[in-house]
């Protein structure tokens, strides 16, 4: 007992760092969020329930959650592919492409929204060709998914990439020398190693998409029941002085996001135990 205690205390600074961590988080974000939740509790349960289950609100959940789910799935597939290509293959302009992946982080969401709608509206560079096939992107649910995919893109790439880089090729070689074909190696060696990173990237892309506002408002039609995302509805409620309604819907979003992250962290912990 005393030995483990001593060993654990070799590294100093726990009190200082955890103290600062909690203080800063507390001031910037935990206390305000707590106060916000407290504010919601000043509503009666019936008022809260009716605010968060209005038909228009429920329709917006469907779009926000569904759209984020689709967007995160697209990012999971293509993000992993991009990470794989960037780590494993050589091709001209690779460094440029690698740097470019961060663009959705760097470009302000409002600019992204304006750029995307300029491209994909039926007058845009891409939209006019899609229009020939009768595909409308701007002002439809497809546009919402497009914007959400765009902003979530770096998350999967940037979480998978370092893990892939650190992955020892010896393992793959060993697997191959034991007679496994490439697909088997990918399934049994590479995939399990990537699994926690994939989950994290997916969760982050999903969570980020769920709350996105700036880029979506420009490209979605903002039509209640059809192309109205939940964050927009929150703004609309607040602008009609319905702070309680806005706070109630905001609370639902908060709780959903937090549950998501908690589940994913649990999964990651489980995965690292199983494969680590």
């Amino acid at each position: 007992m005393s030995i483990t205690l001593v060993k654990r205390r070799v590294i100093p600074g726990f009190g200082l760092t955890i103290g600062f961590t909690l203080l800063y988080m507390g001031l910037v974000f935990l206390i305000p969020v707590g106060a916000f939740l407290l504010y919601t509790t000043t509503m009666s349960w019936e008022a809260f329930w009716s605010a968060v289950t209005q038909r228009q609100v429920v329709a917006s959940y469907k779009l926000s959650f569904g759209g984020s789910l689709i967007a995160a799935s697209i990012n999971l597939v293509f993000g992993t592919l991009v990470a794989w290509v960037l780590v494993r293959y050589r091709f001209p302009g690779k460094r440029f492409v690698d740097a470019l992946v961060d663009l959705p982080f760097a470009l302000p969401t409002a600019v992204a929204g304006i750029a995307l709608v300029t491209l994909y509206a039926s007058t845009g560079w891409v939209g006019q060709y899609l229009d020939i096939f009768g595909i409308r992107v701007a002002y439809t649910q497809l546009g919402v998914v497009l914007a959400l995919t765009y902003i979530g893109l770096p998350f999967v790439v940037r979480t998978v990439q370092p893990v892939l880089e650190d992955l020892e090729t010896e393992l793959e070689e060993a697997s191959a020398s034991l007679g496994a074909d490439r697909l088997t190696t990918i399934r049994h060696v590479i995939f399990p190693a990537l699994f926690p990173a994939l989950l994290t990237g997916y969760a982050l892309a999903f969570a980020r998409a769920l709350g996105e506002y700036g880029s979506v408002v420009f490209i979605s039609g903002n039509l209640p029941f059809r192309t109205e995302i939940t964050p927009l509805l929150i703004v609309a409620k607040a602008e009609q002085y319905d702070y309680h309604g806005a706070a109630a819907i905001g609370t639902v979003m908060l709780v959903a996001a937090f549950l998501m992250l908690l589940i994913i962290n649990g999964l990651q912990w489980w995965a690292s135990r199983r494969h680590g």
């Binding site: 726990f14 961590t21 702070y243």
Partner: peptide, 30 residues
């Protein structure tokens, strides 16, 4: 360091990613 509630702390740090910017604004307006 190992300590209780680490997983929760990590989730908490991720939270601002997941909170809609609009809700962040609303929190401070309220």
């Amino acid at each position: 360091f190992e300590f209780r509630g680490k997983s929760i702390l990590i989730s908490l740090i991720d939270m601002p990613f997941a909170i809609s910017p609009v809700v962040v604004g609303l929190i401070f307006v309220i």
